[in-house]
């Protein structure tokens, strides 16, 4: 399945897609499946499963902490594929976010094959730029997977066009110059970046991430982007909770608020 299905459905409803991120294996393998399932039930359209990595340079402290907990619990790349399979079974499209080294070690083609078999739609690659992505371009073509590269406010026009040319499914626009983490204000650079992307391609959906933490911000970002990507704020529900049940409860509440947020504005 391509993630395009989710974007087409939301477009028909006149709203943005809500993408919610959770590290695989946090707090445990089963716990992360429960968390992602709760997000789907509460209205998150697309689940972004992050493969935990020891050195996540694009992520802020919340995601790093959750990833460290997952790794300390012994989660393996193969577990991530099981989690993806379980979440995909709920019917929600699942996209995988991963730093590049775990994929190289698994084997790029082998991972693409197993990801497709698990029902994953494709990869978001925060530290892989198309310039270095030869093997992934080939493997994603061979196994029919989406490719989401990042673009940034600092990307030149030439790089923007090159990167968008290699994306499939959607493009990830990093709204701020900075790492992940909920912020008081979303960035004013985001609408400008989305406009620059649309000037290059009108067809490719644009997801905007980094900084969204509540329904109002989801509505604001959803007014100009095709997808609203929320990570740290959702993960914090689980990190801050005294126990798993209250974490899931907080996660459902915030997911529902964000889902209402993307539905609060006409597009």
């Amino acid at each position: 399945m391509s993630i395009s299905v989710a974007f087409e459905k939301a477009r028909a409803e006149g709203r943005a897609v809500l993408v919610g991120c959770m590290p695989a294996g946090f707090p445990t393998v089963d716990g992360s499946i429960a968390a992602m399932t709760a997000m789907v039930e509460a209205g998150v359209d697309v689940i972004e499963v992050e493969i935990p990595y020891s050195d996540p340079v694009m992520d802020g402290p919340v995601i790093q902490k959750a990833s460290d907990i997952a790794l300390a619990g012994g989660v393996r790349t193969a577990d991530t594929l099981r989690i993806i399979e379980a979440v995909a079974a709920t019917g929600a499209p699942v996209v995988t976010m991963t730093y590049w080294n775990p994929i190289e070690q698994y084997g790029v083609d082998a991972f693409a094959r197993d990801l497709a078999a698990a029902g994953g739609t494709g990869l978001i690659t925060p530290d892989l730029i198309p310039d270095e992505a030869h093997d992934w371009l080939a493997a994603s073509d061979a196994h029919g997977l989406d490719r989401t590269f990042l673009v940034s406010p600092s990307s030149t026009d030439a790089r923007l066009a090159m990167t968008l040319g290699h994306c499939r499914g959607f493009v990830y626009a990093t709204a701020l110059m900075g790492v992940t983490g909920a912020r008081e204000q979303t960035s004013s650079a985001a609408p400008a970046l989305v406009s620059r992307i649309r000037a290059v391609t009108a067809d490719l959906p644009v997801g905007v991430g980094l900084g969204v933490r509540d329904g109002a911000q989801a509505a604001e970002v959803g007014s100009f982007a095709d997808g609203v990507i929320v990570g740290s704020a959702l993960i914090r529900c689980m990190v801050d909770a005294p126990d798993e049940a209250s974490g899931l409860s907080a996660l459902r509440t915030l997911s529902a608020e964000l889902a209402a947020g993307v539905r609060a504005v006409e597009r």
Partner: peptide
């Protein structure tokens, strides 16, 4: 020209840093 020593080196970094590099 793109920083490779045989198969090694290169740039495995967020797009946000490409302009600075």
């Amino acid at each position: 020209a793109t920083g490779h020593f045989g198969p090694f080196g290169g740039r495995f970094i967020p797009e946000a840093l490409v302009a600075a590099l």
